[in-house]
Design a binder for these strands. Structure first.
Lengths: 207, 207
DNA sequence: GCGCCGGTCTTGACAGTGTCAAGTTGGTCG
DNA sequence: CGACCAACTTGACACTGTCAAGACCGGCGC
């Protein structure tokens, strides 16, 4: 928490020297960072705009001015999260070409970026119609689908409107991440989630 | 705090049989119902104790008196949810003996009891140490494990501390339910979730 | 050089929230 | 019948998000 304040001050100092955004330098950036720090501690639903403002060293109404809303701030966090998420998935796919590794990256992102991840999948707290959010979300979806392939004809010859394997794998890693972070798994799994997920993957076959 | 909830339950159980209580009859019941109705509309994080009180026709502080806390009320909702959940899973297993049907029941419960389900898996809003919640949670866990069997020795002869198939299936249905209710799935899936889940299950094999 | 302009942020206010302490009510039991 | 006590109310407090109005400051046209 103290570290966040320090970072914020530093960011302000450096940015203000280079660019010329009058009072704060890049308040939008600082507010998002403060929000992420706060979410990491107590979850997105407990976020307080006034606490964020205090963290960033500005007046209590500054966040609302920048993001319109509390939901607006959370939407900005979620959008940034989806972008980082897409980056992580893309990296995993390009490095390995193995879609299981994309699943591992999915879970690892959830663990390493808990604040972003928790915010991303809480639509009732967001402005779902926000174009930036939609764009970032689409990026993530595309990164996820990559490697899972297109739907193939089933045994009866008809082509389904979705790829069951992709949907199943997505559900699996998403549920795994959610249950893991909710503390629903036994200690052995919580201690080494990646290993547990690999074990699970080794026991499953997709037709 | 958990003790308060527990005591209240006991008091109600004993007293309600003998005679109705003075002002309201069964306010605890009415408050939980009001909370569920409110959660169904706007999610557990937007729950307002005062709105619940108004719904139940009592003063604004009555809910806190009964449940100690806002988290206390949500904990009571979650505990009741876990009990109903365990019932549903037990029913599915006893009716079919097929653990895929238990998975279907899992998702169906999430759809039919959105308010309960959303509350159950939001630990940051609950009193996780509440004994009644822990009991109901354990019931659900037991109902879920049933049919998945115990961990079996792997190829190297060692017995893992968890059953990968059970964990995988759990993750899959949980993730499916979460993504479905978050609106993350294509229309074809959202229109017939049960059919989609059966299709997914038909394409997956557990070793 | 100067005054205005527009965006950035602040100030002050408002209704609504959860929580707590103190009071009121009314059934129950000795 | 009176004392007791749990159930509930009342009133207050600090805190929240949101909004309107104002203060501040850089850059623009003149």
């Amino acid at each position: 928490m103290g570290a966040v304040v320090f970072d914020t001050v530093k960011i302000r100092a450096t940015v203000a020297l280079v660019t010329d955004r009058y009072h704060h330098g890049d308040l939008r950036r600082a507010l998002i960072d403060a929000a992420v720090a706060s979410i990491a501690e107590s979850g997105p639903s407990a976020l307080s705009l006034r606490a964020v403002a205090k963290l960033a060293g500005v007046s209590h109404a500054a966040p609302a001015h920048h993001f319109g809303d509390k939901a607006g701030l959370l939407t900005a966090v979620a959008a940034e999260g989806y972008d980082r998420f897409a980056d992580a998935l893309d990296r995993a796919w390009e490095a390995t070409g193995d879609f299981i590794e994309v699943g591992i990256a999915y879970v690892r992102f959830a663990i390493d970026n808990k604040a972003y991840f928790e915010t991303m999948f809480r639509p009732e707290l967001l402005h779902e119609d926000d174009p930036d959010l939609a764009r970032a979300e689409a990026r993530s979806r595309a990164a996820l689908i990559r490697g899972a392939g297109e739907p193939k004809p089933g045994p009866d010859g008809t082509v389904p409107e979705f790829n069951p394997n992709a949907l199943g794998a997505w559900s699996l890693v998403h549920g795994f991440a959610g249950l893991l972070m909710g503390g629903n798994f036994p200690q052995a799994v919580a201690a080494d989630p990646e290993g547990a997920l690999r074990t699970i993957a080794a026991h499953i076959r997709f037709d």
